[in-house]
Amino acid sequence: MNATQRLTSVTLSVSDTPSNFIGTCRPVDDFEKVGRVGEGTYGIVYKAIDKSNQKTVALKRMRMEREADGLPLSALREISLLRRLSHTNIVRVMEVCVGQDLADFGLARQFSVPPCPMTPKVVTLWYRAPEILLGERLYTEASDMWSAGCIFGELLKNAPLLPGKVEPHQFELIIALLGNPTERIWPSFRDLPLANLFRFDTPKMQQQYSTIKQVLSSSNGAAAASPQALELVQDLLVYDPKRRLDTRGALRHSYFRREGPNPCIPSAIRLRFDSRSGGGGGGIFGGGSSAGSGNLRGGGAIANLRKKLEGEQQQGQDFRRKIRRVDRDEDFDLPVGARPFRQFDLDEK
């Protein structure tokens, strides 16, 4: 006889429910863990084999804090949103399976992107818009545009643009990059709830001009950003959310129109490998020699991904072979889309 837990209903009747109740979910024992991939925001991610069809999946063990109000909203949101999202570069939640302990469940996902090695605790802080830092509660999609600007800048710089450690530090970095916020460029920012927690009069906070051009012109071996790329970052990183570029404006930006290559569907993007620059991090996008028609600008992140696959990730072995083969071959085109990053697809062949 299985263990049961005694539950009291609002009718005050008592029922004994089996502790291993799984409903319509699958038990986590259906998956065999074969390796540890990394740690996500809410728990550990494993590489696992689905015993029923031998497919490789990512299994995320979600930590369940025993909260006063039951299931945490953050976990529910994560599951529900990932279930609805469908994009080649975003992991797809296939199902949620259940462990033995009632307060523990796992997420089975299809792999597509190597997990991010940066500590997840601060990851949102780096991309957090100034109005949210100042406690704005009614923030809009403009805050996402700020994040987009940070990430675009990161791709150009080949390093995080604003890697703040704590909230005040984050603000210092923003000011060092963009200069002081003033009433003229951002009316009423001092009325935001947390504005009085930040001191804008310390020497560190005194920076009159934007240094964004200098920061993105030469750093970390990344090629200098083009004038239109700089302009796009600047238009996205605007203090006043009302004056910040919106999605519509960003899509119409001259960066996408005046400088080639033009936007296209992801599967049509082709990366040009330049074998002459060797196996270094800048190999894929390195400077002028390979600045051909099919080259992408600002490929720091892709180079990082490659470094990660070659070094840190045990799971990337199959993909590594592919890259070595590429290195032997001159001017090999590696199609980019979902495929190269979905290294576990190779297992199935």
Partner: peptide
């Protein structure tokens, strides 16, 4: 004592519920 008993039961029941729904809550 009854309140706390009911509260724990409801938290357990919520977990049972999401399992019946296969976490498909949207």
């Amino acid at each position: 004592e009854m309140y706390w008993q009911l509260k724990d039961s409801l938290i357990a029941a919520e977990l049972i519920l999401v399992r019946i729904l296969a976490f498909d809550t949207h």
